[in-house]
């Protein structure tokens, strides 16, 4: 990490939010949201694993219906999208035009993620699998569905700040997007792999 870019970002920010968050980079409120979301998804994933103890065989069988390759593809899609968003934050002050393009591309990868997700859901529905089919599916639909809703919200945010890219709003939208990324990285092993 070069020192120059983050400083450039910070020039745009009010001092207050930095003091209040005890040195957290960026806006205090977005960190409140990020931590809240991580707590919710963390609790959901722990609840899945805890409920799994009651029926390990049933959970393993149910899990085998999920599409692991799709999940792996989506991981690469999301971390790449996160890269574009992070790049946009660093360029927002100096080159807003390029930042806009990067944000649109990042949102585009979000759409790719949702398309893969939709095909995954379609395959499950085709097998007649719904949220009540098995406890595992209650969790997997709930957690991945919640996450997908956040992807959609993140795309909207990215596109909104792409209209007039300035470091502060772009920083907020990108931070939300990275949170979506982070949640996915932690969700995949528990829902798809273990």
């Amino acid at each position: 990490m070069t020192a120059a870019q983050p400083t450039a970002r910070h020039d745009e920010k009010p001092k207050a939010s930095e003091e209040g968050a005890g040195g957290l980079p960026g806006e205090l409120m977005i960190w409140v949201l990020i931590i809240s979301e991580l707590v919710v998804f963390g609790a959901g994933l722990l609840a899945l694993l805890a409920t799994r103890l009651t029926d390990p065989a049933g959970f393993a069988e149910a899990q085998s219906h999920l599409h692991r390759v799709g999940a792996a593809v989506n991981t690469v899609v999301l971390v790449s999208s996160g890269y574009l968003a992070a790049l946009a934050v660093r360029l927002a002050a100096a080159r807003p035009g390029l930042a806009r393009l990067l944000l649109i591309l990042a949102a585009g990868l979000g759409a790719v993620f949702l398309a893969v997700k939709a095909s995954e859901y379609a395959a499950l529905f085709a097998q007649g699998i719904g949220t009540e089919t098995h406890a595992f599916f209650t969790f997997s639909y709930l957690l991945t569905g919640f996450h997908a809703a956040h992807v959609l919200a993140g795309m909207v945010l990215l596109l909104l700040v792409a209209v007039r890219p300035a470091p502060r709003p772009v920083g907020v939208a990108a931070a939300f997007w990275h949170m979506v990324d982070l949640v996915w990285v932690l969700l995949v092993p528990v829902v798809y792999l273990l």
Binding site: M1, P6, G22, G23, L24, P25, G26, I34, V79, G82, Y83, A85, A86, A174, A175, H178, M179, D181, L182, V185, L186, V188, P189, L193, L194
Partner: peptide, 30 residues
Amino acid sequence: GLVLGVLVLAGLKSRLILRHYLDLSQSPVW
């Protein structure tokens, strides 16, 4: 092997996202 390997890899990825995408490397305490 699967459980530990996959979770360690997830942990490493999370760490990279937190430190370099979310810029936490600027605030070592956090």
